[in-house]
Design a protein around this nucleic acid. Structure first.
Lengths: 227, 227
DNA sequence: GCAAAAGTGTTGTGTCTACACCCATGT
DNA sequence: ACATGGGTGTAGACACAACACTTTTGC
């Protein structure tokens, strides 16, 4: 037999909250990285898959049914990652719809990804990886479903995209892009105007709430495939 | 202490060979999957990173300097993956330029990804994952450098893209797309015509031979960024 | 009526595909 | 000369951004 690494799992859980993309972190109270903020996660146990494992660990932080999407990000293996233990770590990306506000343990809270506190281990770069993955997939998949409530107005959806992409998004063009690609469908209902007036907004939903690729060929399309 | 999984690494090594995308496999001569074909790889050892480890294992099959690109694909963890050992397995994608023909051990050979023999473990789906990753990145990155020799004509490059994408590619349009994006530059040299005549082909090279994203925003660009 | 918010019409631009046509070489 | 393969010119389709304009509400 040879020596084996300990396998740990963690998750970058993202949510668009009050116009900002935020990530779930807990504050460590023991070395290493005492006081720093870390991704939720823990050890992989016998008999479970990595995805089972991260769902189990997240269940201690949030109700797992509130996760609208989860996917694997990357596995890191720097032997110097942990000072006293040989660890291999697999990170996941998890998304929570904007209309949920899970109750959290006292050591756990949301932090704006644009203004992170000091993070433990390699968690800072892993958060960046997760943010970039989300950003890219907003462009060529239907992953917006995982940030949005079941039903929403276009301008509400625009605010979610703006938070996640970290740049302005035009509601006009967002509507046309997502409708042309048949990602959205109207529910037929309207959102009533607020006290300051304005035309009532039509409500939409995502046609599918499982990940699918919608812009398969960025370029170099096969012959005969227009658009 | 708790029980730990064994960590193994493997690689989907791809090359465009005689007009077909091919993958490096070795034939197992012991259970499990006796006789089936498997990806090269092996155990992770203390003190090495996953990428170190797969490079070390591949060195037993091919000269590692011949790998033009390597990137992590996915980590799988099905507890039933191996009948007698709890394994976590990280797979990499490796690419070999088309002008090299590494000498291989007797148990190892190239196989067309479009016509695979029976594969061991979950290696069949991992090969598909690698092929899809390559296909997608050919569209929005400069990863073509990793399939191509240092210098090539446009029609030679077209043949490599055709093999990897598994559909026809127009040399005319490939040239324009890659030149407009400034991925290619002319070397100034010409390929002499063959015995059947024809205009000599201009030779090109990739400007960079490290991966970079060239079509960052498939859609939903920030304002002011023309497409 | 007027402000506010949502939604549509329309124009312009850049990128890609398709295909006709021209260029340079070997026999 | 003519076949062969390489390269350019050009037109059309499409998706997107930008912005003006219209619609529908609250006060």
């Amino acid at each position: 037999m040879h020596e084996k690494p300990t396998h740990v799992v963690s998750a970058v859980v993202l949510q668009a909250r009050s116009g900002q993309l935020q990530v779930l972190l807990w504050q460590r109270r023991q070395p290493p990285f005492d006081g720093a903020f870390a991704l939720p996660g823990g050890y992989l146990l016998p008999g479970e898959t990595l995805e089972d494992s991260i769902r189990r660990h997240l269940a201690e932080k949030v109700d797992v049914r509130e996760l609208s999407h989860i996917e694997q990000l990357v596995t890191t293996s720097d032997p110097a990652r942990h000072p006293s233990e040989w660890q291999v770590a697999t990170a996941y990306l998890g998304l929570v719809p904007s209309d949920l506000d899970p109750t959290l343990p006292s050591d756990t809270s949301w932090h704006r990804v644009a203004d992170l506190p000091e993070t433990a281990f390699d968690h800072g770069v892993i958060i960046s990886t997760g943010r970039e993955r989300l950003r890219a997939k907003l462009s060529y998949t239907n992953i917006g479903f995982a940030l949005a409530p079941h039903s929403f107005s276009i301008s509400e959806l625009r605010d979610l995209y703006t938070a996640a992409l970290e740049h302005e998004v035009s509601a006009t063009n967002l509507q046309r892009v997502l409708l042309r690609r048949e990602l959205l469908e109207a529910t037929g209902e309207l959102r009533h105007s607020g006290p300051s007036g304005g035309r009532p907004a039509a409500l939409y939903r995502f046609r599918s709430r499982t990940l699918s690729i919608t812009d398969q060929f960025a370029v170099l399309r096969p012959p005969g495939q227009h658009g």
